[in-house]
């Protein structure tokens, strides 16, 4: 038990920066990233030895869990807090290091599942098939979500350029 705990602590120490960074890409802001990482790591850590028996690469498993949790969380948040969330969207620019990045701002407006597909594709470098398996959905869904996301990003970026 003690060794399991030590082992998990060492894993957290090593993996935390990467997971937080990934969470930032996934959620679009550092607060949600911290929330997501903490939630998923605590879940994972509570059954650490089981997970190690089942997988060679806990980090990959955790990243997939984060992507799924992020999508689920969004669904629940949207259902319960839609009105409360909306006014925040435009405000609070100081906390955002990517304030002047049109692409980052365009990403913010994607629904989380589209964003998750984009992050798995361009951050993780996964194929459509791998993304489908990560999220437990069909490849057709991945394709259509990616295509919607890309179209929407292009449209927003074009709009930004024309405004200037």
């Amino acid at each position: 038990m003690v060794s399991e705990r030590t082992d998990f602590a060492e894993f957290v120490e090593a993996a935390l920066p990467g997971l937080l960074r990934y969470g930032h890409a996934l959620t679009g802001n550092p607060h949600d990233a911290a929330d997501l990482v903490q939630t998923v790591l605590e879940k994972v850590g509570s059954r650490w030895s089981d997970l190690q028996r089942r997988t060679q690469d806990p980090t990959a498993y955790i990243r997939r869990s984060m992507a799924n949790a992020h999508i689920s969380k969004w669904r629940r948040t949207r259902k319960e807090n839609l009105v409360a969330e909306l006014p925040e969207r435009k405000g609070n620019p100081q906390a955002d290091p990517f304030e002047h990045e049109p692409l980052w701002q365009a990403l913010r407006e994607l629904p989380p599942r589209q964003r998750a597909v984009i992050v798995l594709r361009y951050y993780e470098g996964l194929s459509e098939q791998e993304i489908a398996e990560s999220l437990g959905v069909s490849q057709g869904t991945v394709k259509s979500q990616a295509s919607k996301a890309i179209t929407s990003l292009r449209t927003k970026l074009t709009a930004v350029t024309e405004e200037w």
């Binding site: 997988t55 690469d57 990959a60 498993y61 990243r63 997939r64 869990s65 799924n68 993780e124 470098g125 996964l126 194929s127 098939q129 791998e130 398996e133 990560s134 999220l135 437990g136």
Partner: peptide
């Protein structure tokens, strides 16, 4: 980048 494609 992940070393290997893995199923979830």
């Amino acid at each position: 980048r992940l070393p290997e494609p893995q199923t979830f």
